[in-house]
């Protein structure tokens, strides 16, 4: 096989996704004439940015066969903590952000340690983390929606522009590029994929699966913290419910992007396209004036469909086997 077609094959998933994305854009612009306006696309961009930043780190957990459900609560808590450090304790905004990032990393590290050293399923650990982080966020903020008015440089992170492009876009693309390089070009990335594909084999070749996983959950939590800081600065608000439900969007973006939740493979670029797609689907539902209740329904259906496609099982075959007489399914195995 020549290199050109190999390259094409390697990026098949991304190319196909891009095609679906373009199709979705065409459909949406046909359905609603408000879709292709600058205002609307900017709106989509904000939500894509936040989900995109979270996915760059959260994607590693599924690649190792785990999952991180705590990203949304972590993001909300990060905004609240940054606000406390800056405005209640009067710290410099850079110091405040750094401390928040360290706390985020610490929580991710804890998730990783509990998952690996105590053999608890990742989704249980991170769901418990989601719950207690939400509780802490509520306690710290007293359940209030706190408006962040200062410091000005902090607010520039979210609303500032460089060369006419909003700063969050730069942050997202920087993280996507870093994450892509980390996954595809570094030893750590290869280790992550190896641990997800076959932990025993990885161990025998000298990879420390526990350490890899702990780093993975730390990265996931750090990017969630970054997303939380961007969100707090963008919305000028710190609120415990700011990011409620984002974890499902993040998982959808990852799954749509072609990453198997069983572990062993993944694509950061695919997840970015997935995040854009999630943004468009949510936006499309809004433009069609659908009630917000359709949002989780659409997300759930997209997850199931994407999962079945990733799994590579043929739906007609499964249905045929199911409709066959009872016991036939067992006999066929």
């Amino acid at each position: 096989m020549n290199t050109k077609s190999a390259l094409f094959k390697e990026h098949m998933v991304e190319l196909r996704l891009f095609g679906v994305l373009l199709g979705l854009m065409v459909v949406l612009s046909l359905i609603s004439d408000r879709f292709l306006t600058v205002d609307n696309l900017t709106n989509v961009l904000w939500s894509v940015c936040l989900i995109g930043i979270m996915t760059t780190g959260a994607i590693y957990a599924p690649i190792t066969g785990g999952i991180d459900l705590s990203v949304a609560s972590m993001a909300a808590l990060a905004g609240i903590l940054a606000n406390v450090f800056m405005n209640t304790l009067g710290m410099n905004w850079i110091v405040a952000i750094l401390i928040t990032l360290v706390i985020g990393a610490g929580i991710g590290w804890l998730n990783g340690v509990v998952t690996t050293k105590f053999l608890v399923p990742a989704f249980i650990v991170t769901m418990a983390a989601k719950t207690y982080l939400f509780g802490v966020a509520m306690l710290v903020s007293n359940g209030d929606q706190i408006t962040i008015m200062e410091p000005a440089p902090f607010l520039q992170i979210g609303i500032g522009k460089l060369l006419g492009i909003p700063i969050p876009i730069y942050i997202m693309f920087t993280l996507v590029i870093l994450s892509h390089i980390l996954l595809k070009k570094t030893v750590f990335g290869r280790r992550t994929i190896a641990v997800g594909a076959n932990e025993v084999a990885a161990k025998l070749t000298g990879v420390n699966p526990d350490r890899t996983r702990i780093i993975v959950y730390t990265i996931s939590s750090v990017t969630a913290t970054i997303a939380g800081i961007v969100m707090a600065s963008l919305t000028q608000q710190a609120y415990a419910m700011n990011a409620t439900g984002y974890e499902l969007d993040v998982i959808t973006a990852i799954v749509v992007g072609g990453t198997s939740l069983m572990g062993g493979s993944g694509s950061v670029v695919g997840a970015l396209i997935g995040a854009v797609m999630v943004g468009f689907i949510n936006n499309g539902l809004n433009l069609l004036d659908m009630p917000s209740a359709f949002h989780p329904i659409a997300t759930g259906i997209v997850i199931l469909v994407a999962l079945i496609m990733n799994q590579g099982v043929s739906v007609p075959a499964v249905l045929k086997r199911w409709f066959a007489r009872p016991g036939a399914a067992e006999a066929a195995k």
Binding site: G300, I303, L304, Q311, W322
Partner: peptide, 24 residues
Amino acid sequence: THFKLPEFIVTLATRGILAGLALI
């Protein structure tokens, strides 16, 4: 069972669908 999908993510997806349907 038939699509061999992870339990956790299937039920998370149906959770979203059902929560939305309940509102509708």
